[in-house]
Design a protein around this nucleic acid. Structure first.
Length: 385
RNA sequence: GGUGGGGUGGCCGAGUGGCUAAUGGCAGCAGACUGUAAAUCUGCCGCGCUUUGCGCUACGUAGGUUCGAAUCCUACCCCCACCA
């Protein structure tokens, strides 16, 4: 039910297929983020047509609203959202990082002051598992402690060791939930769920290795995530961390680089053995009018696009580029029409998903390294000039 | 015709003697965003220059008072309300 096959490799890069209860995921793949059970602004059909094979949901946000019981009542997150392909839920661990100032961390778990109503909420490894179990995604993530990219060794070690201790608690609770499945699970029909651990350790190579070794000692796992990157550290540092982990990560488990990234990050990650990515930038930047194209970033509000009859990216096959001129997209943003946010979001999502598809094809042909270098060259040199 | 109110930078609108090239907002221009407290946030926004500074022009028009005026006085032009 949880199987990963590596079908081709080129250097550290891999092309594979991940089998999950709700379907297959061909890797490398970008997973759009749907925090509140919706990829912001988009209809599930639009997400599907963009080629998304799997999307994310968030434990923290869905727990606060509408509450996992409301989702379980209608049969789980798949039925709730009508997304019938694979899903993964983040554990709330990232909110430990992003909601700094609204939370306090202790060994039992994390106390949050709800950003919605100020009420006090506690998230623990156990409650994160309970919530994710009720949500019923194919993959649940371990509840981890993310530290900023600038974190010194001591702080990174604390977060990493705590993440390992919490992993034991996550695993125990998840195993119990799995054993009690039919009676405890509101999802109909019940479908199995797997748990993925998260490597932490900040920017410190020795901590990253300790983290991974600790995880492997608790294995086996159906997938392993690398967290705590793209949180303020320079890109070369992230690359070094990935290079340090690649030789030790088991080949037979998919590797998920959490929260990454931008187009160049995908290519650099794939080149270092990463199989799965997720990132809010595609949709957030889309809503903010920033589009990725094969020749670099485009600010759709830019004055010089007022008369442009070109598509956003002539090399793109998304529904937006197939139909709308830049001049119209710009107009929609200037007029603050919601269609603009949606169209650029669709483009950005398709852009990253296609990058995964192209990388996969290139790896299978043994041309990925060349593809990557040519692609980055064109992307950074703004082909127009 | 009379009385009252008012004319401020592309627009709206504060300011009623120096701290005012002039608060705000809008419009415009540019940028940021990486497991979503984000359809958000930041910067610029009279003109010119050797741009953390300097010069010039500017608060209806013209003149005056004052060391100094968008702010006070006089005349004129225009707008609005009410009264005839």
């Amino acid at each position: 039910m949880f199987e990963f096959r590596v079908e081709a490799t080129e250097g550290l890069a891999r092309a594979g297929t991940l089998l999950l209860p709700h379907g297959a995921v061909e890797t490398p793949a970008f997973m759009p983020v749907g925090t509140h059970g919706t990829v912001r602004g988009l209809h599930p059909e639009e997400v599907r047509r963009a080629g998304a094979q799997i999307i994310l949901g968030n434990t923290y946000h869905l727990h606060l609203r509408p509450g996992e019981s409301a989702i379980a009542a209608v049969g789980g997150l798949h039925r709730f959202t009508t997304w019938d392909r694979p899903m993964l839920t983040d554990s709330g661990g990232f909110q430990v990082f992003s909601l700094e100032g609204l939370r306090s961390i202790g060994e039992p778990g994390v106390e949050f002051v709800s950003h919605l109503d100020g009420s006090r909420r506690t998230l623990t490894p156990e409650s994160s598992m309970e919530i994710q179990w009720a949500l019923g995604a194919d993959v649940a993530m371990a509840f981890d402690h993310v530290v900023p990219g600038q974190a010194d060794w001591a702080m990174a070690e604390e977060g990493m060791e705590r993440t390992l201790r919490w992993l034991d608690r996550c695993r125990a609770r998840h195993a119990r939930l799995t054993a009690e499945q039919p009676s405890r699970r509101a999802a109909e029909p019940p479908s199995p769920q797997t748990l993925w651990p998260i490597v932490q350790g900040g920017t410190h190579a020795d901590l990253r290795l300790r983290s991974l070794e600790g995880i492997l000692a608790r294995g086996p796992w159906t997938g392993i995530a690398i967290g705590g990157l793209s949180v303020g550290e320079p890109k070369p540092v992230m690359h070094r961390v990935l290079e340090g982990l690649a030789p030790i990560l088991p080949a037979e488990a998919p590797r998920y680089l959490m929260g990454v990234g931008f187009p160049d990050d995908l290519l650099e990650g794939i080149a270092r053995g990463v199989d799965l990515f997720d990132c809010v930038a595609a949709t957030r930047n889309g809503r903010h009018g920033s589009a990725w194209t094969s020749t670099g970033k485009v600010n759709i509000r830019a004055a010089h696009l007022r008369l442009s009859e070109e598509p956003l990216d002539p090399a793109c096959d998304c529904e937006t580029c197939a139909r709308f001129p830049r001049a119209y997209l710009r107009h929609l943003f200037m007029a603050e029409e919601m269609l603009g946010l949606r169209l650029v979001s669709i483009h950005n999502i398709r852009f990253l998903i296609r990058l995964g598809e192209q990388s996969r094809a290139a790896i299978r042909e043994g041309t990925f390294d060349r593809f990557r270098r040519d692609w980055l060259e064109r992307y950074h040199h703004r082909g127009e000039s």
